[in-house]
Computed example of a mutant assay.
Amino acid sequence: MRALFIGGTGTISAAISRQLLEEGHELYLINRGNRSETLPEGVHSIIADIGDEDRVKELLGDMKFDVVADFIAFQKKQLERDYRLFKGRCSQFIFISSASAYQKPLSDYRITEGTPLSNPYWEYSRNKIEGEEYLMKLYREEGFPVTIVRPSHTYDERSVPLGVHGDKGSYQVIKRMMEGKPVIIHGDGTSLWTMTHNSDFARGFIGLMDNIHAIGEAVQITSDESLTWNQAYEAIARALDVPLIAIHVSSEFLDASSDEYDFKGGLIGDKANTVVFDNQKLKRLVPGFTAKVRYDQGIRQTVDYILSHPECQREDLEFDAWCDAVVDAITEAAEKVKSVRKK
């Protein structure tokens, strides 16, 4: 199989790239070359800004591919560009959408590909929905060979999956745990969520590649494992061998208390909702697929990797100060209410 990825070095795409090359497939990546040190051996790198359409067209020449996948398309106009570049050049075009596109609030916590798409809380999700609709129209009217993939919360060895974190990643929350400081869990921590290791996602994705039964379909790829957020944070603390000191804060309060962090989209429009994914469609299209990495095992590998790789330990002092302010505000509010009642 000959494949072309737009992107190819992110949390999801890097794992797919590695597995494809291990299986002996031919893989080309279009990216700007900023992370060339992370590229797996054997990949064919096309150094270009995908936004420079004329240059990309020139570099591609008359090349054709079994599969083209865009991992960094977030708006319809980017997919319009992809259509111009790859119409007639590939047998399958895969768009990476998002499970956050499913309706919020949910009418049923059990998610299938038939769950309606609607998210008034998050522009990111609405843009993904618009992209899906554009591509499916091309499929219905012109036969453009599209497959839509909807990941949910996928993680790798470089970052711990969290509900509440700053712009510099997850390390500051880990550091707070190690320092014995309270960490913020949104809501009461009992809503269900699914975290998928990128190696599991990659196997499902590769099974959809060059798969005639996946053309014209939307498919979600997640683990079958569901955890509460309390369980997820407890697993992180156990991996660090420290006690979990949690403070629970409503998602609405978190959204109202910050102009810098997008908790309206990321929490109210996504992670604060209980979701349980039904992967029967994926298993029908990719016989034998099952997610193998249990969360507590995967998160221990991630924590070990982060602690042994200083480049993953990006401190975020602004987020740390914001956490302290939220914790103080919640604690003070509780004490104030108790004092009023005593009077």
Rank of each mutant, 00 (worst) to 15 (best):
G8P: 09
G8K: 04
I12M: 13
A14M: 10
A15Y: 04
S17R: 12
L27F: 10
L39D: 13
E41T: 10
H44N: 15
H44M: 08
L60D: 09
F74S: 14
F74D: 11
Q78A: 06
I96P: 01
I96E: 06
S98V: 08
S107F: 09
Y109D: 14
E113R: 11
G114Q: 13
W122S: 11
E123N: 12
Y124N: 14
Y134P: 01
F144S: 03
G169E: 04
G169Q: 04
G169S: 03
V173D: 07
I174K: 01
E179L: 14
I185V: 13
G187M: 01
L192Q: 14
T194P: 10
H197T: 00
N198G: 03
F201C: 06
R203M: 08
G204K: 08
L208E: 05
A218N: 09
V219H: 08
N230G: 02
N230A: 03
L244P: 01
A246L: 08
I247T: 14
I247L: 06
Y261Q: 10
G266Q: 02
V286N: 09
A291C: 05
V293H: 14
R300G: 00
Q301G: 04
V303L: 02
Y305E: 06
I306Y: 04
Q313C: 02
R314Q: 13
D324K: 06
A333N: 11
A334N: 15
A334T: 11
R341A: 12
